[in-house]
Amino acid sequence: MKALTKRGFVKLAAAAGIAAGVSIAPLGTAFAADKITVGALRFTSHAPSFIAFERGYFADEGLEVNFEFFQAAQPMAVAIASGDVDFGITAISGGLINLAEKGAIKVVGGGLQEEPGVDGQMILVSKAAYDAGLTSPAQLKGKSFGITQTGSSFHYIAHKIADKEGFDRSEITLRPLQKVGAVIGALKTGQIDAWAIVPHIAKPLAAGPEIESIGMVADYIPDYQVTTVFTSTAMTKDKPDLVKRFLAAFSKGAADFNAALIDKTASEEEAEALVQLLHKYVYNDQPYEKAAPSIRNGAMRINEGAKLNMTSIADQLDWFKSEKLVPETVTMDLLVDPSFVETN
């Protein structure tokens, strides 16, 4: 039997009440929606939340959603811990893990993941660096690499490239620039040599005159769980049903996204409708005709049912510990609550 949402229950109760001649309170009176704030970046990778909002999946689960937009992952983790934001979807950062160690935050689901056969994150270099001979990730030794903050996913990627190519992590010079926009500007002007980013941003950049693509992150970090869904530890303990309802709506949004833009099992009309929906949030400062190809071509798999790759999470945690960015005492149990979604 299909689970009954709050909205569905109210409709059913109303129908039963009418049949029995009983007066029913208006929708929203007896069952007020739970108001939540969702942290997001204006990336295609955050599409499930935008789709769930626009198509009423959150409302169907009795959730009234407000979005809080960020420029990087670590500030979102701080906002979750402070209670300013209820759910976040972004990469695991050192800040997030340290807050988890203090009992403030839990990862409860998976989002974006590298997958064979699906274009993923791209390794980019400035045109100046490319012309000077930086044409392969193996040549990143001695070069500069843009990151938002120390302990960000970009930091992790840079070091995983160094590990696989066999040179010391210290031989990549990291440039923390705080915001994605600042990293893009520095790469275009040659102030940094390299960076790596999701395809909806990377492909348009690589198509321009200032930046070249030299590799794929998936070749260095197979099955990388790029983003996760996280919330406060208090939410998992005090309102587990709300967490489940959030993940249910999020998963419906992910299913729509994958069907339209990854598996392409949906119709072209559905794909076009979805791209138009996402344009409200992604590249909304550009004309639709310019933004649409980037949204389509930059799609990566969002895990079905918010499934969580525990092997990837464990690898990330080990890296943070190896760099002494988080305490050795942090365990997977402190970081992840695996009770809400399927894991592997």
Rank of each mutant, 00 (worst) to 15 (best):
M1A: 15
M1P: 15
A3E: 15
K6M: 06
R7W: 15
A14T: 14
I18D: 12
V22W: 11
L27W: 11
K35L: 00
V38M: 02
L41R: 07
S45I: 04
E54R: 04
R55F: 05
Y57I: 05
E61A: 13
E64H: 09
F67D: 03
Q71D: 14
M76C: 06
A77E: 01
D84W: 02
V85H: 01
G88F: 00
T90I: 14
T90W: 12
A100H: 01
I105S: 02
I105Q: 05
V108K: 05
G111E: 05
A132I: 05
G133P: 04
L134W: 01
T135I: 05
Q139D: 11
K141C: 10
F145I: 07
T150H: 13
S152H: 09
Y156E: 01
I157Y: 07
F167N: 10
R169W: 06
S170F: 03
E171R: 01
L174H: 10
K179Q: 10
T189I: 14
D193C: 09
K203C: 12
P204H: 05
I211K: 01
S213Q: 13
G215R: 03
Y224W: 14
V226E: 03
V226Y: 00
K237R: 12
K239T: 09
L242M: 06
L242H: 04
K244N: 09
A248M: 05
A255K: 07
A259L: 09
A259E: 04
A260C: 15
S267G: 11
E270C: 15
E272M: 08
A273I: 10
L274C: 02
V275E: 06
N284E: 02
E289M: 13
K290V: 15
P293L: 11
N297C: 09
M300R: 03
N303M: 07
E304V: 08
G305A: 06
A306K: 09
S312C: 02
S312Y: 10
D318C: 13
F320S: 10
K321N: 02
K321C: 02
K324A: 09
P327E: 07
T329I: 07
T329M: 08
V330Q: 09
D333G: 13
D337Q: 12
P338L: 11
F340N: 00
N344Q: 12
